[in-house]
Amino acid sequence: MTIRTPDAVVASLTADTSPYLSCDECFERVDQYVDALLLDPQHADPAMHAHLRGCAACREEAEALLELVAADAVR
């Protein structure tokens, strides 16, 4: 779990989250998103980027999956 400053928390709560993506939709797409990021670190998915900026739970899930898959790819 990442500890964030009060300013970072306020910024994430007030971040523009458009185009809108729900947590359920994010969860359904996170595997494809991580795979795409591994192939192209500059991968553009505006809805995922917006959602992950504003949702700490989904961001932590995506970051953990990215670390896990990246570490597995190195082996």
Rank of each mutant, 00 (worst) to 15 (best):
V74C: 05
G54A: 03
T17Y: 04
E67G: 09
D72H: 13
D31C: 05
T2G: 05
E25Y: 11
D72E: 15
A64L: 10
E60P: 01
A64N: 10
R4F: 02
M1N: 11
E67R: 15
H43C: 03
H49C: 02
M48H: 01
V10H: 02
V74M: 08
D40A: 08
P46K: 08
R53Q: 11
V10Q: 04
L13E: 09
V34T: 05
V30I: 14
Y20D: 11
G54Y: 01
A57V: 12
R75A: 03
R53G: 01
F27H: 12
D40W: 05
H43Y: 13
A44S: 13
V9Y: 03
P6L: 00
F27M: 10
A70G: 06
D35P: 00
V30N: 07
A11V: 03
D40E: 13
P6F: 01
E25I: 07
T5R: 07
H51W: 02
P19I: 04
D7L: 12
A62Y: 14
T14D: 03
V30H: 12
V30W: 08
V34C: 08
M1V: 08
D24N: 12
A73D: 12
C23M: 02
D40V: 03
L21F: 05
M1D: 11
H51V: 03
D7T: 10
D35H: 11
Q42I: 06
P6N: 00
A56C: 06
V74Q: 13
P6R: 01
D35M: 07
A44T: 11
D24R: 14
E67W: 10
Q42W: 12
A36P: 02
P41Y: 00
H49E: 13
E60W: 06
A70V: 04
L21H: 05
T17A: 09
T2V: 10
R29N: 13
C58K: 10
L21Q: 10
L65H: 04
A62K: 13
H49K: 13
R75V: 07
